[in-house]
Design a protein around this nucleic acid. Structure first.
Lengths: 134, 134
DNA sequence: ACTATACCCGACAAATTTAGTCTTAATTAA
DNA sequence: TTAATTAAGACTAAATTTGTCGGGTATAGT
């Protein structure tokens, strides 16, 4: 109920590794997957999500790979999670609610508060807080 | 990755409903499941978890049911979640770690910090904060 | 131009987790 | 004794997550 998924984990490891290298230098999926024993295909797809969201930039062809595009200190974890996994709500009715008991629901309001607290928390953690080397 | 499960949801609804009634009065699974359109069997099993953990007390036989046993203001949400779903960790290596990369893992420490923040947060929310009527 | 390397993308399959069902007790009020 | 209630475990179904596959596009090096 409150666990990081592999895709998020792999993405964090990848970005962490990329941040350790010089700016502008490229890192390939192969490299990261081998060094960390992560399934190549899954990591590849995850990196593609990050590329689409312009967190990283892809360079194709031999010696290609990914490099950081946005400053990790400027990326909120909420954003990051949602890039990889889609909308993040503690209960379904936070985003989409075709629950027909929504009005009579006795726990909706307090759950919303928790939801907000969690989002607040992750809004105040940057990607860099997790992936920086030191 | 961060969603309440049905069992937790059902348990909260049940407890919320029980708190609205007079102290000592009994509420049956049937009653709660019908009024909230919750699958009877699933709710029943969930109530059994709460009974084993002595959050509620069961009274068998006709006109039986459950009543609160512990003061909801004294129950931390962390405890509550773990009664229903077992150990709650943001990453598997928080509790049990047979990950053989645990030493070289670059994101372990910051993930642990997030883990702790989440637990702190839920340690500071009581069951009553969610289930109280007003 | 050819080839090898790397990213891109969607469909599929397998594994895991969550949700829900069924059956058979045990207890007890009436 | 019967009906209503909780207790418990095995089972199935659905949903989600994880991992795989096959075919594409771009490009550096030759």
């Amino acid at each position: 109920m409150l666990k990081i998924t592999r895709k998020v984990e792999y993405a964090l490891i990848a970005l962490s590794q990329m941040q350790m290298k010089e700016d502008e230098s490229l890192t390939s999926v192969k490299e990261i997957s081998q060094q960390n024993d992560i399934p190549y295909e899954l990591l590849a797809k995850t990196m593609q999500l990050l590329a689409r969201a312009e967190i990283v930039e892809a360079v194709k062809g031999p010696h290609g790979g990914y490099r950081l595009k946005k400053d990790p200190t400027e990326i909120k974890m909420t954003t990051f999670f949602e890039i990889i996994e889609g909308p993040m709500g503690f209960m379904d009715c936070y985003f989409d609610s075709n629950c027909d008991q929504i009005h009579s629901c006795s726990i909706r309001t307090p759950i919303q508060r928790i939801n907000d607290s969690i989002r607040d928390m992750f809004n105040n953690i940057s990607l860099n807080d997790i992936t920086r080397s030191v």
